[in-house]
Amino acid sequence: MEKTATELIDELIIVHIKLYHVIDKKHEAADMGFMEEAGYQGIVEDTLNGQRSALKNALSEKLGDEFHEIKVGSQEGLQR
C-alpha cells in the first residue's frame, strides 16, 4: 500500500535520528583512531543517506508545493 505523507515524514524523522547517531559514532571512532570502525560507520551512513533520499523523493512527489499540516492519529490528507 502506498505510504501517506505523514508516514513518510515519520520514517524520515526516524532515519534522521539514526543518521545523527551514526555520524556521532563515526566521528568518535575517527577521533580515537579507530579508522576501521569509522569506515564501517561511514558505510552505514551512506545506506541511511540513500534511505533518506528515497523517502525525500517520495515525499516530494506526494506533497509537491502543498502545505502539509502536522497530522495526528488517523487524520490524513493535504490541507492549506
Binding site: 505523507a5 515524514i9 524520515l12 524523522i13 534522521h16 535520528i17 545523527y20 547517531h21 555520524i23 556521532d24 566521528h27 515525499l59 506533497l63 508545493d65 502545505f67 502539509h68 499540516e69 502536522i70
Partner: peptide, 30 residues
C-alpha cells in the same frame, strides 16, 4: 539529535523557514 531532525521535517512539510545556530563545531558537523 532529536530537535533538529523533527523541526526540520515538520517545518519542511509546512513550508516554513527554520534557522538553526550552533556554536559547538562537533554538534554542527552532525
Amino acid at each position: 539529535k532529536y530537535s533538529t531532525p523533527i523541526l526540520h521535517e515538520l517545518c519542511e512539510a509546512q513550508k516554513r523557514r527554520l534557522f538553526s545556530y550552533e556554536s559547538n563545531r562537533s554538534y554542527y558537523e552532525k
